[in-house]
Design a protein around this nucleic acid. Structure first.
Lengths: 345, 345
DNA sequence: CTGAAAGCGCTTACAG
DNA sequence: CTGAAAGCGCTTACAG
C-alpha cells in the first residue's frame, strides 16, 4: 500500500503538506499543491481511512442502526419483511452519505445493554448515527440522547441537544385513507396494525379514527387487532381474526408488507378484494404495485426522508444548520384494492 | 472514552499486558489476568476497534460487495428488487461474521475503475471480501483475484490463490423445474430470464434445456427472452413479449422477483395462472409464498450459502481450512403457480 | 510472564 | 506557506 510518506518524498514535501492538500487546507502554495497532486496520481495513492479516522478529532463514519426486538445486527434486521420499507429509504441515505464524503456503516453489535451499545458505537468512532427505530420504548433511544452522540431518529421521536428526528406525516396520510374509505361508503372498518408501542402505528390509527369520528362513524374496538408486523405474522393473525369476525367491509393494514400477508389470508378465505372487502396499506413499497390486486396505499417520500435525515445529522455533527424535526408530507395512492362498500352484508 | 492506558493504571500493569489479556495471549499470570478483567469491568472499557484495525497486521473487518451495473454503493444495490434474494442471504452472513468477532461492512465506493476499487478496499483495511456478483464479465472480479485480496465470490466463478466461490447448484435446480413442467405435460415453454452474462442465468437455462432435449422436446429460440431482472423490467418486458407470442403453456422466470412482475403482466393480459399458463421462479424469496397464486420455485439454501461463504473466507484469510468451491444443493418447491398444460391451445 | 519501545498511517497545533 | 513533532489508541516483536 502506498502511504502519504511516499507521496511526500516524490513531491519533495513533508507528510504534513500532503495531508493539507488532501484536506483542502487554505494556505498551500500552488506549486506545492500541484507537485503533490502529481505524485498522488503517479503513485495511485489513496489515504488510509482507518488511520484518518483515528487521527482526526472527529471521524467521517456514519452509523446506521435499526432497533428491532433488542437486536443489534442492523443488516440482519433490514432483511426482515417488516423493514422492507426502510431498505428503500436506506438507498437514498447511502447515496447521500457517499456524496458528502462520509462512509456509512451498519454496526453488527451483539445483543446487549444500552450502555454497552453506546460504548460499541464510540469504540467504532461513529461521528453520528441514523437510527431507524420501531419501538419508542427502546432504552437505547434515551441512552443515545444522554450520551450526546449526534443522532437522527427515523420514526421515533427522540430529541435532545444532539438529537432530532425525521418522519413522514403519518397522521395526515392516515386521514386520507379514512376519507377515501368513507367516500367509498365503508362504515365498518377493521384495523390490523402493529402494536401501538410503535408510534408510527399509533399515528396511523389516530388519523383514521379522527376522520371516522367526525363523520359520526362509531369505533368498534373489536375490529382493532394489534399484530406483529411481518408478512408472515400478518397472514397468520388475519386467518385467526377471520375465524372470529367478518362483519366489516374494509381493512386498514398497518403497512404494505402486512397487507401482502393479509391479502393471502383473504384469498384463502374466499373473500375477494375489493369486491367483498377493501384493503389499504401504508408506505408504498416497491412491491405494492405488484400485488393482486395492486394495493391502495399511502406513499412515503423516501428520498425526502433519507436526504433530510442525512442533512440534519451533518448539521448536528458540525453544529451548524437546521436541526428541527423533519415532517415529510405523505400522499394517498389509489390503486385497485379499494372499491365501493358492498351494499348487502 | 476510556482507553487501555486507564485500564492498565487501575490494574497496575502495562498497556501491553492489557492488550495481551484482551487478545487471549497465552503467557499471562492468573493474577494479572484477573486484575485486568476487574479493571475492564469497573471502567466499562471497550477497545477502540479503529485503533486495533490500524495496529494489527491484519484487520478484523470483512467487506461485503455487490457488483451491479458498475455501481459501488453496495447497500443501495441491495435494495433493488433484483437483489432481494441476497438480502435474505446477507442476514446469515451478518450473523455468522458477528459470531466470529469480525465486523461486516458494506463499503459505499463511488463508481470507479477496478484498480481504484481495489485501492479503496485496501484503504479501508478489509481483511477480505464477500462479493455478490451478478455479471461474470465485471472487471473487478479479475482485479480482486490479481490483487490477492482474500475473496469469496457468490454466483460468480472466481478462483485464485486467495479466491474461491460459493453458489447453489443452479443446474440441478433447473433440471427439477424442467422435469416438473414436463411431467405436467408442458412442451412449449417460454424462458424470461436475465441476460446470459450472468452465469446463474446461463446455468438455469441450461438445466431446463438438458431435460427438455432428453425428452425430445425441440427448443424454440423465439421463446427465449433475455430481459433485465428487476420486477419492473420483467413486467414491462413481459407485456411486450405477450404482444408478440402467446403460443406457450408455461413460463420459466429467471427469478422469483422477475416472476412477480411477470405475474402482473399475465393478469393484465387476462391469462390465468396456472389454468392458462404455468409459471415458475427461482430462489424462493420470502415473498414467493405470498404471490397470487403462491409461486412454484427452486429454493436456495440461504443459510448454507451464507455460512459457507464466511467459513471459506476465514479459511482464505487465515490460510488454513477448506477453500474449495462450495456448491449447495437446491430444491424444487411446488406451490400453486404450476398445473397441467391446457389440452387445447 | 511482563514492560519499554517502536510502529500502524494519518492529522494538527506549534513554530518559524 | 511549510516542516518537525506529538498524538490518535492500539499491538507486537524485543529484551529481560
Amino acid at each position: 500500500m502506498v502511504t502519504s510518506e511516499q507521496v511526500a518524498q516524490l513531491a519533495g514535501v513533508s507528510r504534513a503538506t500532503v495531508s493539507r492538500v488532501l484536506n483542502g487546507s487554505a494556505r498551500i502554495s500552488d506549486d506545492a499543491r500541484e507537485r503533490v497532486h502529481k505524485a498522488i496520481k503517479a503513485l495511485g495513492y489513496e489515504p488510509n481511512v482507518v488511520a484518518q479516522n483515528l487521527a482526526r478529532p472527529r471521524s467521517r463514519m456514519i452509523a446506521l442502526g435499526l432497533f428491532h426486538d433488542n437486536e443489534g445486527l442492523a443488516i440482519s434486521q433490514l432483511g426482515r419483511t417488516e423493514n422492507y420499507f426502510y431498505i428503500d429509504m436506506v438507498r437514498h441515505i447511502d447515496r447521500c452519505v457517499a456524496e458528502i464524503g462520509y462512509d456509512l456503516f451498519m454496526p453488527s453489535l451483539p445483543r446487549s445493554k444500552p450502555e454497552s451499545y453506546i460504548r460499541s458505537l464510540q469504540a467504532r468512532r461513529a461521528a453520528g448515527i441514523i437510527m431507524l427505530a420501531v419501538d419508542q420504548s427502546d432504552p437505547r433511544i434515551e441512552a443515545l440522547i444522554q450520551a450526546k452522540i449526534p443522532t437522527v431518529f427515523v420514526d421515533a421521536m427522540g430529541e435532545g441537544s444532539h438529537a432530532t428526528y425525521a418522519q413522514s406525516n403519518h397522521l395526515e396520510g392516515a386521514r386520507q385513507v379514512g376519507e377515501h374509505l368513507l367516500a367509498l361508503g365503508h362504515r365498518r372498518i377493521a384495523f390490523l396494525i402493529e402494536p401501538l408501542s410503535n408510534p408510527t402505528s399509533t399515528e396511523r390509527l389516530l388519523g383514521c379514527q379522527q376522520v371516522l369520528a367526525r363523520a359520526g362513524v362509531p369505533f368498534d374496538p373489536g375490529l382493532l387487532c394489534q399484530i406483529e408486523w411481518s408478512t408472515d405474522e400478518a397472514y397468520h393473525a388475519t386467518k385467526e381474526f377471520l375465524s372470529r369476525r367478518r362483519d366489516f367491509t374494509a381493512i386498514v393494514a398497518g403497512s404494505d408488507m402486512m397487507a401482502i400477508g393479509i391479502l393471502r389470508a383473504l384469498h384463502e378465505a374466499g373473500l375477494r378484494v375489493p369486491e367483498d372487502v377493501s384493503l389499504t396499506g401504508f408506505d408504498d413499497v416497491v412491491l405494492s404495485q405488484y400485488t393482486t390486486p395492486p394495493l391502495t396505499t399511502v406513499r412515503q417520500d423516501k428520498e425526502a426522508l433519507g436526504k433530510g435525515a442525512v442533512q440534519r445529522l451533518i448539521a448536528l455533527i458540525e453544529e451548524t444548520g437546521d436541526v428541527s424535526p423533519l415532517i415529510v408530507p405523505s400522499q394517498l395512492v389509489v390503486r385497485e384494492s379499494t372499491g365501493p362498500a358492498p351494499v348487502s352484508s
